[in-house]
Design a protein around this nucleic acid. Structure first.
Lengths: 124, 124
DNA sequence: GTTGCTGCAAAAAGTTTGCAGGACG
DNA sequence: CGTCCTGCAAACTTTTTGCAGCAAC
């Protein structure tokens, strides 16, 4: 059974406070304020445990390094990546209905949609 | 101006023959038959050049290592990843219509859809 | 006290780069 | 013949692991 340590609490708090997908090194930077001396290995170990217990989710998409976000099964959403500033943001809602392109005989479990473009701050 | 070498031809041929997204090490394995002694660095350099000239595309999605495929702008498609055998396959067609979830003020350039599940060979 | 966690440093895995020689055009 | 490419090995980057000590329960 996992222990609730100061470091892991800090890491989860930072993810919740930022409210957007973050990278491990971003997490280290922010959580080090709450837990001085925090190491990157601890961040990776905490993330692995959060993913395993379903509290967090790893997001890997083209063009940006892996990000993690707090997972909430009632908040289904997708992502927008600005190709200009390489920031990842959350898109509410879902377009659904993938049946028409699915191959026969397979079982669908989940899906991911990523939209690439320029965010409103980078559209010039 | 790039030179047309035996190694690069082999690499592109293998991508065309397999007709599905492949990893750099898969490419090395298959292209080594046509070009004995081929090195992984050469595969990476060839892929970088193919991507830059628009002949190939890098696909990075959660759960599997980066793959590359021959790029054809008239063949828009998405991907299915079998969580069981970790194979990536191509889904023809597109569900389109992302406007309803797009944030205001941003410009959309492209999108990616990935469906996860079990392929027909792994559904038991 | 026992178990699990932490920081550090070393190890892995994947990708890139420097270099001397060779192929291409 | 100049330019670009190749294989090798070393360097880098990101992530994982071994270990001795410490914190949590």
């Amino acid at each position: 059974m996992p222990h609730k340590t100061q470091q892991r609490s800090s890491i989860l708090e930072v993810m919740e406070e930022l409210g957007r997908p973050v990278t491990p090194s971003e997490l280290l930077k922010h959580a080090s304020v709450k837990s001085p001396g925090l190491g990157l290995a601890t961040v990776y170990r905490a993330l692995k445990q959060l993913v395993k217990t379903g509290k967090s989710r790893k997001i890997e998409i083209s063009g940006v390094p892996p990000h993690y976000e707090v997972f909430d099964k009632n908040d289904h959403h997708h992502f927008f990546v600005c190709e200009e500033c390489l920031t990842m943001s959350v898109l509410d809602g879902c377009i659904g209905s993938f049946n028409k392109i699915l191959p026969a005989g397979c079982r669908i479990k989940s899906h991911e949609v990523v939209i690439y473009g320029e965010c409103k701050d980078c559209v010039s």
